[in-house]
């Protein structure tokens, strides 16, 4: 099935100018997303997951230098689009939900009015109609008593409720692409599942594509069709959920799997990944994992290859991992 991808990113590179020099946050990040697909973007904190998302949404500040060979969303070239054009894409084509929903909502505006703001930003809609639509939107994310809650402020709602409002807000503009940045971090386990189910339900209803940014592999495995694993600003491996979970090929992915608890693992069986992320301000080796890698060889100093294992599975490594079976 060859489909025009809804999002097509090739060789995305992001550097930040800081007081201590350039931070090379992202390098040769490439991925595509087709309609209706859910991709998990995983990796430890600081690996560049959120920066990738912000770069796609063009939400990075002026200190960021973003370059790419290709960066297209819904047929619009994000590199050359003007601020106004990008602003018109946001909400309509692509939207984002955030980790801390309470902080991500305007504290002094009622949640209903905030949904009305989004509705009216994208469609000419009389106030009364928008008001009704906002109540509907609240009902759709199963907020009890939506008529009354319309007037509630974020501080009056629980974290889970705020995240529901956030979802209602994101879906109000009927986007084609949703980027969910750690949407369930900080929520308790039952609420996590409820929120994730809600996101899945809403996106499959509308054939929406979703990027789920998370460091919770167990959770992501349940909801994603595909994964991209990030380390220190590189996508080290991408493939289907089976590819990643059954046939992890990059040493980092392998170690990440071993560091993820499953039902039957004991604490002593959990292996931490040695070392920490390299300092992104310095000159970096071609493979940014080389200093932490248990199987690095002198050959790793050569430019990073992109090895295509099959149609869906791709790894950026000279020495692909073979787990002893």
């Amino acid at each position: 099935m060859t489909q025009v991808p809804i999002l097509d990113i090739r060789n995305l590179k992001v550097d930040f100018a800081t007081r201590d020099g350039m931070v090379h946050a992202l390098e040769s990040v490439s991925f595509q997303l087709v309609r209706g697909e859910t991709m998990g973007l995983v990796g430890e904190s600081g690996s560049g997951k959120s920066v990738s998302a912000y770069a796609v949404m063009r939400l990075l500040g002026s200190s960021a230098h973003v370059t790419a060979d290709r960066m297209v969303c819904g047929g619009v070239d994000l590199r050359s689009a003007s601020d106004a054009e990008v602003a018109s894409l946001r909400g309509k084509r692509m939207t984002m939900i955030f980790q801390n929903a309470r902080a991500a909502l305007n504290p002094i505006r009622s949640i209903g009015d905030q949904i009305v703001d989004v509705l009216r930003a994208h469609r000419a809609m009389p106030k009364r109609e928008a008001h009704e639509a906002a109540i509907m939107a609240l009902a759709e994310v199963r907020i009890p008593d939506p008529k009354r809650r319309y007037h509630a402020y974020p501080f009056e709602l629980s974290g889970g409720m705020c995240q529901r409002v956030m979802i209602a807000l994101a879906f109000a503009s009927e986007p084609e692409l949703l980027i969910a940045d750690e949407p369930t971090t900080g929520l308790d386990v039952t609420t996590q599942a409820v929120i994730m189910d809600l996101i899945r339900e809403k996106s499959s209803q509308r054939q929406m594509s979703t990027i789920l940014i998370t460091h919770d592999l167990t959770l992501a495995a349940e909801y994603c069709d595909r994964f991209a694993v990030m380390h220190a600003g590189h996508i080290v491996e991408q493939g289907t959920t089976t590819d990643i979970f059954q046939r992890a090929t990059h040493p980092y992915t392998g170690l990440l799997m071993q560091a993820t608890p499953h039902g039957a693992t004991t604490l002593s069986e959990l292996a931490a990944i040695p070392g920490s992320l390299p300092d992104l301000r310095r000159e970096l080796p071609p493979c940014r994992f080389v200093h932490r890698c248990p199987q690095s060889t002198p050959a790793c100093a050569a430019p990073l290859p992109r090895v295509k294992l099959d149609a869906s599975h791709e790894v950026a490594c000279h020495m692909p991992w073979r787990e002893s079976e």
Partner: peptide, 9 residues
């Protein structure tokens, strides 16, 4: 950031 991500004017 949210308001921008949602495409508010």
């Amino acid at each position: 950031t949210t308001a921008r991500a949602e495409g508010l004017p």
